[in-house]
Amino acid sequence: MQIHDNPALKAEARNLNFYYGEAKALKGINMPIYDKKVTALIGPSGCGKSTYLRSFNRMHDLYPGNRYEGEIRFFPDNTNLLSPEVDPIEVRMRVGMVFQKPNPFPKSIYENVAYGLRVRGENNKRVLDDKVEHALKGGALWDEVKDRLNELASNLSGGQQQRLCIARALATDPELLLFDEPTSALDPIATAAIEELVHELKKRVTILIVTHNMQQAARVSDYTAYMFLGEMIEFGKTDEIFLKPKDKRTEDYITGRMG
């Protein structure tokens, strides 16, 4: 799986295994994540793509009985994100996440975006105002909400809520942004807006996105990984994966014969 003229590495999974209790959910995954690129994870339900994604911000640490083996190296500092010596909170401060279903807090639009900054101890009103505006612009939501920042986030539409969640993640300048099927709860128009935003965001942040939708993977990503039953079957440039997959299983999935 040698790929030439590649950009710099942002992260790399090395022989990653993951267990929910006794059940092995990820089996020996090796995969590079390139800096300022969009990498899509595709595969049928239950193949472990969300499990893999949630390893990058140690979300599994929130629940008992989960166990990692192997490494996820994070660059440029070559930190192993999964090391027991690395605080998961420190990992989450560097790696942002957007969830499947929009999950804004039942607070104002402003407070939703400012939350990550407050958690970091920022209380200066001017700094907060500034960063909230910047993040909302980054989430392509500023023009729609600039006159009602103090309204409840739950008053926004589903698509706006999801862009708010993206802004919330952007506010703290993450190095890597994880998207866990971010459009599966949205209508086609809202989906298009999110996809466009992802395209825009890769100028400033590395993106790893799980999607059920192969067209979406083809549209938004530079690299694609196909996963099946907890294994990484194939990884490559998106057009290569879709146009000439090397593995039979990848081809079956992409052509719709499976999954």
């Binding site: 989450r92 999950n103 939350y115 990550g116 958690v119 970091r120 969640c165």
Partner: peptide, 23 residues
């Protein structure tokens, strides 16, 4: 309180106590 609210808070780097206090 749904788990996704807790996860949303922890995902930006909050501690358990910050999650409790703010949410």
């Amino acid at each position: 309180i749904p788990a996704m609210i807790r996860e949303g808070s922890m995902a930006v780097g909050a501690t358990r106590w910050q999650t409790c206090r703010y949410h």
